[in-house]
Every structure is written in structure tokens, then in C-alpha cells.
Amino acid sequence: MKHTLSVLVENKPGVLARVAGLFSRRGFNIDSLAVGVTEKPEISRMTVVVDVEEHSLEQVYKQLNKLINVIKVIDLPDANSVQRELVLVKVKAEPRNRAEIIEIVEIFRGKIVDVGKGTLSVEVTGPGSKLSAFEELLRPYGVEELVRTGTIALPRG
């Protein structure tokens, strides 16, 4: 089962290696990992989506807490958190289907961020499931390149 963990860490060199090393060493699978600064420059937030059973989740949580540079680990259930991800897609766009693609982008409240010869580059944000749905709809037109940021999340309220 997928769990989103928000990990507040000291913004120090080597912290990402410690966290990533812990996951690989203990055999925990990471779905995605996104790192960035927070409102406090000395603290960074890692949002980690892990795919583990309940028992292993407890181990992930406890082992993360044992890392000296980890300040806090918060489990963010979908219902009590806002989760977002961003995708950039470069999709093939012939003149005949360009309008169709633009319509799909609008439905997903995306943005066209680059127009090339025969391609459109699109940006969409939202929960992971929305991005996956968007990706599926674009696939028939021919996706040339695609990149996702991984989920970032904050608790609600």
C-alpha cells in the first residue's frame, strides 16, 4: 500500500544520501521522493511516497526517526492532506489533432508551456491519479518525453 511521508530534515550536506541509503539498505521501495526547502532555510522537507505494508511502514517511520538529521516524520493519509505533483509532457501534435489536445489540456487545467514544430509541451499539476489519467489520454497522440516531479504534500488545516 502507498503511504506519503513528510520528512523534515536538517538542511545539511549528505542528508539525502542518509535517507536514500536507509531505504535501499532496509529494502523499502520508494515510489517517489521530492526534496525542497521549507519556510525555514535550515530545514528541508522530503516528501517520500513508499509502497509498503503496515508493519514495514512502522519500521520506515522508526528507522527514519533514528537518523540524527531527521527532525520529524509525518504520515500523511490522503484524506487529511493536500497532495500535488507536476508533470511536463511533450506530445506529438499534428495540425489536425492540435485542437483536441488543447481541449484535453484545458479540461485538466493544464498549461501549454512550449510549442514546437509538431509538438506541444504541457504542464499539469494535481494529485498523482489525475496526472496518470491525463497521461493516459495523451498517450494515443504520441508522448515523446515525460517527466513527473514526484508528490509533495502538506497536512490539511
Binding site: 550536506p13 549528505g14 544520501a17 542518509r18 541509503g21 539498505r25 540524527i68
Partner: peptide, 14 residues
Amino acid sequence: TTGITLPIVKHSFL
């Protein structure tokens, strides 16, 4: 050294 010892220390400092 900090990289090599990462999985076998409680903590390390460079």
C-alpha cells in the same frame, strides 16, 4: 569515508 561508513555508523560528520 563518510559515504563508505554511512550504513554502519550511528552518525558521521565531515
